[in-house]
Design a protein around this nucleic acid. Structure first.
Lengths: 215, 215, 215, 215
DNA sequence: GATGAATGAGGCTTCATTCAT
DNA sequence: CATGAATGAAGCCTCATTCAT
């Protein structure tokens, strides 16, 4: 991208030590927002605490930068896929779910989503930022995918907004679980089996094949 | 002596724990475990900080008491329903989901579930307690319900453990959402519509009516 | 003693539950003055905390009562022995040392002495009381015993005040040790062997030759 | 910048620990371990409470550092003297006792020994540390000194372990006294006279006859 | 007399943020 | 640019003492 000007955070980005963002990502994921100490971020990045403040105004801005650096780009790719996919929407659905798992759900980035669900209410400004930059864009992408399936006649004519939430639920669930009880070594959820089951259950409910109404 | 003004010894011992538990529930739900200040719990209950420690050893025991007082009994009722329900499993399914919404999901108790997902990894002992007293019992109850449907021929012969997780996902999702981004006044999920959609999608996928395999 | 009037503390003594004093003694000895909680004293005595305050103005007075009840009487007996002993002063010396061990040093009362050495400087009023009621009387008794030996020609004509302190040292030492490092299960001092050695060394001296001057 | 007024960053890192250790030593000696407030240590050192934690993990580590900095080195010197002394063991004995008085007993360091005797049972980990680093080394040094005297024929062939305790007793006693009743301005022990008496009595014995057995 | 619920000051420790060098 | 020493507010918990019942 050769825009002649860059947004503020992009302009500062080049100079910012990537080590700080990497360390921050690791620690935010491991401990959560509130429990992550900037001291630890700095020392994991091999710099002093003061240096951290040269690049990031405060903890909040550091977190936002982590999100911009790591989560937002993946979202862009998913949007591209939905826009340009050729094939059945069921296949697109599988592609998106598995792609999400490969790039987010199965990686440490899932910890960011968990963290936001966990702590957003204590940090409203961070929540606002994340909602705008990540959640609303992600939701829109899922909704477009469902609409594609309905338009092509592959899916029943359901309420897209609600179905979108139903689709997101297992993904959110999986990310939460990985970083909460799973982390405590309790009976783990098997992600692959879980996702395949979800796809199975969801598509068999969604496909326009004849079935009795649930209600 | 009927002094016209309130004295510090006026309240009764029997009432105190309940008042403290009520205040603790409210604040744990509102702010999470870590961010809840015992000072605030005490003053919301109308007592001093020290008084709280007359009834609860420490923050952890206070939280456990909140769970035991509020969450565990509801679980017992649900177990009874599953055990004794007469009617189709689809109806039992609806009963359980809506019952959960009335008693947990739609009440502030949902905040407890959210809190545990959010902070369990920072408080392993609390997590262990919650897992044993709530999660494993809840999971077992859902699993028994699904097995009932399979045994009666109402449901396809699916992997019960995985399906159990799929069933829990939207409930967990709803509870998380209510206390995270929803609390920030962002675009809310409509719980009733969401749940009905979920039941619809899930049952239409589950019922043994003929349908194309997803894979 | 049928004095027609009693001192203040004696007057209250009859009514005072001995259980409180017994519990206080045990806990003061076990934990020290500062670390003993009046809560624990009361509950070990089977009464409420408020009751304790009916009998003792505060912690300090409770402690003083413990000393008056347990330590002071033993001192009186020792004084009687020194006054009335018939036999060599070396035998009296042995009698006093072993008597001290039987009544104080080898019993939990040694904990009171240890406690006072340990904490008196943080509680000047308690220290003043203990010094007057116990230490100065005990010192005087030892001094009288040494003077008896010098007067009879059994002992060299030493500085009585200083020798008195030298005599007290091993006893104090033993009491301190029992309740400090010994309590931590470290290499214990054997009290009987230690005392016999002390008596031997004290009465006979270390040097094998009869009496090169020490200075 | 040579601002005329003192800034909070003026002091050097290298100087801080020493200032804190000096303040800690003073307060530990004056008040004991438990009664010493870290707040007071910090403000006596001219820093804020938080600064103390930059240099010492917690109260326990601060205390250990005080011991390592002040007590342990003196012990090393004494060990050297015992190892290399040329002259009679009686002279070595005097050297050690007076050296102890000059470096420990007569200085505020004696307060550390008193403190440990006083509070070790309430702080087992601190006690363990002190026992290993100070007491067992000190005991071994005294024992070697006594063995030297026995081997050379200067001393009777006594039980070294017990005699070691007898030798330590007056020193411990003196340290205890200085920081307990002596601190309350009660009738003081004269240390020099007391020690000389002890050396005299210990080396020569009390009985005027050349050595009737004590038992 | 007896109770025991209640208080509140005070202690240890943590950590985001500041700023002289 | 970079450093890292320093701050101080805030949190959890303890316990001697009070006093209505």
């Amino acid at each position: 991208m050769n825009c002649p000007f860059k947004k503020r955070w992009e302009r500062r980005k080049e100079a910012r030590p990537q080590e700080l963002l990497a360390a921050a990502l690791d620690l935010f994921v491991e401990r959560g927002y509130s429990a992550t100490r900037l001291d630890d971020v700095a020392s994991m990045a091999g710099v002093s605490k003061g240096t951290l403040y040269l690049y990031f105004t405060n903890k909040e801005e550091l977190f936002k930068a982590v999100v911009r650096e790591n989560v937002v780009p993946v979202l862009g790719e998913a949007e591209d896929i939905v826009e340009n996919f050729e094939g059945s929407t069921a296949d697109l659905f599988r592609e998106i779910i598995h792609g999400w798992w490969d790039r987010i759900g199965g990686t440490k980035l899932s910890g960011i989503a968990k963290l936001m669900m966990a702590e957003s209410s204590n940090f409203p400004e961070v929540a606002q930022f994340y909602y705008e930059e990540v959640i609303s864009r992600g939701n829109a992408m899922i909704a477009r995918m469902l609409e594609r399936g309905i338009k092509s006649g592959e899916f029943r004519s359901i309420d897209v907004t609600q179905a979108m939430n139903v689709v997101c639920a297992p993904m959110v669930m999986l990310m939460m679980w990985k970083h909460s009880f799973n982390a405590c070594r309790m009976e783990p959820i098997q992600p692959e089996a879980y996702l395949n089951n979800f796809i199975d259950l969801f598509l068999n409910g969604l496909l326009s094949a004849p079935s009795a109404s649930a209600q």
